[in-house]
Design a protein around this nucleic acid. Structure first.
Lengths: 195, 195, 195, 195
DNA sequence: TATGAATGAGCTTTCATTCAT
DNA sequence: TATGAATGAAAGCTCATTCAT
C-alpha cells in the first residue's frame, strides 16, 4: 500500500468512525487501526484530526457535486431538474448511510469548524440548487420574486431533515423515493408562478 | 441567589457557552464561572455536563412549544397557521440567536445523544406542524396524499436551515420575515390540493 | 435527640459505613444520612473524617477492654485466661461482624493513621495479653525466655487473621469456638515450660 | 529504557509510594514522577491505579513464593520447615521494609479489593504453610486434630503482626531472628502430638 | 515514509469541609 | 446547636500529537 492508497484508506476509515461515534468521540487511534496504518502515519497525510474531517467533506462533496451535475445535465426542464435533485440527494443518503450520517451530524459538529472553514464545497452544492431556481426564474416558470439563495437553503434543509428522519428511524417508515417526490412536488407547485 | 435562581443561572450560562464553543469544547468550569457559582454547585443541579444540555433543551422547548401553541390558537385557517408558524420560528431565531445556535448546532452534536435521548420535546415541536397539516387535510384545503410527518420534517428542515443561514452570515443578507413569507407561501402553494 | 445521643448515633452510623465501604470509600454525607443528622452537624462533634474513625476505635476498644478484663477477672490460671481471651476475641468478631471488619480493615487503612495516632487503646488491648503471659511466667507455668510483648503480638495476630478468614468466607467453614480452642491450645502447649 | 524496563520501573516506584503514602493517598502522578515516566505512560502498562497494586502483589508474591519454596526444599523435617518459614518471612520483612509495608497495609486496603480479587497468590502463599502442617500430620509429628487451614492463618497472622510491630517501631526493640525462633518454637511445641 | 511508544495538558467529577441562616 | 447548600481543590484518566528509530 503506497501513498495515495493510504490517504484513501484513512479517509475511508474516518468516514466509518466519524459516522459511528461522532467527531468528538472518535479517536485518531481507532481510525488508524481501521485504516491499518500506525497512528503517526495519519499525521503524514493530515495536519490534525479536524483536517481529516475537512478533507473527507471535500473529497465526498467533490465526488457528489460531479455526480449530481452529471445527472442534471441530462434533464432540461428546471422542474424536472428539481425533482431529479431531490431524488438523487435522498437516494445517496439511502445508499450510503454512513456518508449521510457524517454529513448530517458532523457538518454541524463544531461551530469553529463551520465558521472558520468557509466550506466552499458545501456552497457549491447549494449553488446547484440555486442555479436550478435561477434557470426556472429566467424561463418564466418559477416565480420571479423568490430569492434563489433562500430557496436553495429551503430545498437542502428539507431534504437533509428528511434524510435525518430516515436515517435515525430504526424501522424505515417511508420510502425515500416517495419522500423525494413529495418534496419535489410541493416545492415545484409552490414555486411555479401565476396561480 | 437561591435554589431555583441558581438553576436558571446555570442554564443561562450554559446556553451562552454551548452556543459559543459547542458542546464538546465547552468547559463545565466556564459555565460555572459565567453563572457565578462554584464548579461543584453545578453538580447539585445537574447529573453531568450532558444533563445540562438535555435540561436546556427541555426548558427551552417547553417554553417555545407553549408560546407557539398560544400564538396559533389565535389563528384558524391552516394556511395562516403555517405562515404564522414559519414567522414565529424564524423570529425566535432572530431574537435569540444564542438559542438558535444551541438548537441548531447542539441538537445534532452527537449521534448518541440524539438517538438515545428520544427527545420527546423535539417531537412535540414537530407535532405542532404535523397537526396543522392534518387539519388542512381534514378540511380539504391541503392535498390528501402527503404524509404529514414527512411534511413536518420538511417544514422544520427548511426553517432550520434558513435560520442557520441567517445566523452564520455575519452581514445579514435578508430579512427573516421576508424569508418566512417565502417559505410559507411556497409550502402553502405546494400543499393546496387541486391545481 | 440531644448532644450525647447524636454523638453516639454518628459513631454507630460510621461503624456500619466504614465496615461496608472501607474508610476511604466512605462518604461523610452517607454517615450523616444514616445517623439522621445534617452533614454539618458531624463537624460539631468531630474534627474531621479521620477523627470519626479514631473516636470509633477509642469507644469500641474502651468498651472491649472493660468487657474482656471483667471476664478474665473471673479466671485465675493464666492458661485458662489465655484460652478465655481467645474465645472472647473470636466470639466478639462473630457477634459483631461490623466491628470486626472495621478493626481488621480500617485499623490498617492508613499508614499515617497507624503511625501518628499512637493508638494507646490498641496497646492497652495488647497489654491484656502481655499481662497474662507475664503472669504465667511469674508463676513458673510459662517459659521464662519468651518476650511477652512479642507473644502478645503473636496472639493478637493469630486471632485477627483467623477472624479475617472467618469474616471474609461467605460460607463459614469453621466454628469460631473450635478455632479459639485450637489457637489457645497450641499457644499454651507452646508456652508451657520444660517439655 | 524500553518496555519491560518501564513496567518494572513503574512497579518499583509504586511500591515505594504505596508504602509511604498508603494506596488511597498515593497519586498516580507521583508514581509517574518517581518512575521518571509521563503520567500517561502508566496507563500503557496498567489499566488503572488499582491494577498497579494488584500487579505489584502478583509480581512480588510470585517471587516470594518461588524463593520460599526453594528454601524449604532443602529441609525435610516439618518442624524445621516451619522454623525456616518463620525465619524467612520475618527476614524478608526486615530486608525489604517497603515490601512489608505494602503487603501489610495495602493488602487490607479495601474490603472490595480483598473480596473481589480472589487473591490466588496470597492463597498460594498460605498453602505453603498448610502443606507443612499436613506433612507433619501425615508423618505423625503434628497433632491430627488441628485444621491445617486454620493453623496456616495462625502462622501467617503471627508473623505478619510481628513484622508490623517491627516495622512500625522506630527503635527496633527486638531482633527478627529471635522473634522468628520464638514463634517457631511456640508453634512447634504447640503442634506436636502426645504431650 | 512508517511506526507506535511516549508524552502531558486538560477535563470532568467527587466530596470533605465551611458558613450563612 | 443544627442545617444543608455551596464551595473549590484535587486527581484519575484520556487521547491528540510528537519523535526516536
Amino acid at each position: 500500500m503506497k501513498g495515495e492508497e493510504k490517504y484513501k484508506a484513512i479517509l475511508k476509515a474516518a468516514k466509518g468512525v466519524f459516522a459511528r461515534e461522532g467527531f468528538y468521540n472518535s479517536k485518531v487511534s481507532e481510525i488508524a487501526k481501521e485504516a491499518r496504518v500506525a497512528d503517526g502515519t495519519i499525521y503524514l497525510y493530515f495536519k490534525n484530526k479536524e483536517d481529516i474531517l475537512i478533507s473527507l467533506f471535500e473529497e465526498e462533496l467533490t465526488r457528489i457535486i460531479k455526480l449530481v451535475k452529471g445527472e442534471l445535465e441530462q434533464v432540461s426542464d428546471p422542474r424536472d431538474k428539481l425533482r431529479r435533485f431531490c431524488d438523487i440527494h435522498l437516494n445517496m443518503a439511502e445508499e450510503d448511510r454512513t456518508l449521510a450520517e457524517v454529513i448530517q451530524v458532523e457538518l454541524r459538529q463544531s461551530n469553529k469548524f463551520m465558521r472558520e472553514y468557509k466550506n466552499k464545497y458545501f456552497l457549491a452544492y447549494l449553488k446547484i440548487v440555486a442555479d436550478i431556481i435561477d434557470e426556472g426564474k429566467a424561463s418564466g416558470i418559477f416565480d420571479q420574486d423568490v430569492r434563489s439563495d433562500v430557496v436553495a437553503r429551503m430545498v437542502f434543509g428539507s431534504l437533509d431533515e428528511i434524510s435525518t428522519y430516515w436515517v435515525t428511524s430504526r424501522r424505515k417508515r417511508f420510502d425515500v423515493h416517495d419522500a423525494a417526490k413529495t418534496v419535489g412536488d410541493i416545492l415545484i407547485e409552490g414555486l411555479v408562478s401565476s396561480h
